[in-house]
Simulated assay, not measured.
Amino acid sequence: MVIDHKKIDLFGKSFIQKVVLKPPFEYTFPVSEQACFLYMLAGEMQYQFDDDHINIPANYSLFLNCINSGKQIHNSNSNSNGEIVILTFHPDILKKVYARELPPLLQRPRNTISNLSGEKINNDFLIQKYIEGLLFYFENPSLVNDDILILKLKEIILLLSQTRNAEAIQVILSQLFSPATYTFKQIIEAHLFSQVSIEELARKTNLSVSSFKREFTRLYNDSPANYIKTKRLEKAAGLLLASDNRVTDIAFDCGFNDLANFTRSFHDKYNVTPTNYRLKARQ
């Protein structure tokens, strides 16, 4: 239930909102070409996409695009009201503000294949102070003008580019300007030999872990862990024969981050250690 709602527009479109919600509440995001930054001032919310749930407590935030459907926030457990500040990023307004050149955060990252559409941002002191500054304008709306709002837009873009989540935010924002939907298999093949976990691959495909595993098994007729490990070991076996690289380097190049685990897995598959596999082949 909405108790209070205040809004500030930029160029005729919603830019900043402050919403006070009384639990239980639920909001499903409509499909649209925009991205949203949601900052939890007080209380907490749960972000749900597919069957994945992420808690967003006070002073934490959520960044997401609304190009895909199925995303919602809700809260049914808290006894206290939730207060949320929402900043909306419209691609046409961003192009107008950055008429000469889009900043790096709005450009598509190189060599990044991902359908990621949501990212939780941890408590960040500078963003917290930025949000506190925005509250002043809700209390003094007569002082608001387009020039100030453009500065606030550029400021949040700069702050987001300096967070530890900048890479994920760049992927999400860039989709507004050069949308590209990658297939499930394209994402898997692109990261097959990278040192990424199943959880990270699920995020890159914009699925929960359980949905990712189901989709993987349907497409590959194998579990993600077993298929990925098998492919990495096969590549490692080929490199052991085709190169003089150290076993340690080959292990890391094939996506293993632990030499002992690589050696054990290699022995389980080929009944010989990597070193002896290379020696036997050359003899």
Rank of each mutant, 00 (worst) to 15 (best):
N68M: 08
I73C: 08
E83N: 05
S69A: 13
K231Q: 12
F252Y: 09
N145S: 08
R203I: 01
F136W: 10
H5Q: 15
T248P: 06
I228F: 12
M1H: 12
A260T: 15
Q162M: 13
R278T: 02
H191G: 05
R214Y: 11
Q128V: 12
E139K: 03
G238R: 00
P224E: 09
L94C: 02
Y270G: 06
F266T: 02
L116P: 10
S61N: 10
E200S: 04
L143E: 12
Y130K: 02
H5E: 14
Y130W: 02
S69D: 13
R232P: 00
S178E: 06
E26T: 02
I157R: 03
G133A: 10
Q34W: 11
I172C: 15
L192M: 06
L64Q: 01
Y98I: 05
Q107R: 09
P103F: 00
Y220C: 09
L173T: 05
S197T: 08
N145A: 07
F125T: 09
N79L: 00
D92P: 09
D52M: 00
S142T: 15
L201Q: 02
L134R: 01
K229I: 09
I150R: 07
L10S: 08
L87Y: 07
P30D: 14
T248I: 13
A251G: 12
S78N: 09
S197C: 03
Y270I: 11
S76G: 08
Y27K: 09
I198Q: 12
L207C: 01
S80W: 00
I54A: 06
G82P: 05
F252A: 07
L135Y: 02
N257V: 14
D147I: 13
Q283S: 14
Q48A: 00
K71H: 05
K269S: 08
T273M: 10
Q128P: 10
T183F: 03
T263M: 12
I131V: 08
Q48R: 01
I16C: 08
K13L: 14
I73G: 06
L201A: 04
K7T: 12
T88S: 10
L240F: 04
P274A: 00
A42G: 12
V247S: 11
Q128H: 14
F177V: 01
D124N: 14
G255Q: 03
T273I: 09
S32Y: 15
M1T: 13
T248D: 11
Y98E: 02
K235I: 02
N68W: 07
D222K: 11
E200A: 04
Q128F: 15
F256T: 10
F136T: 08
F266H: 03
F37N: 00
L94M: 04
D4N: 03
N145K: 05
F25Y: 01
V196Q: 07
A168M: 11
A225E: 13
I3T: 13
N245L: 15
E199G: 04
P57I: 08
N257I: 15
H53Y: 15
L102K: 04
F25A: 01
I198S: 15
S197D: 03
R232G: 01
S197M: 04
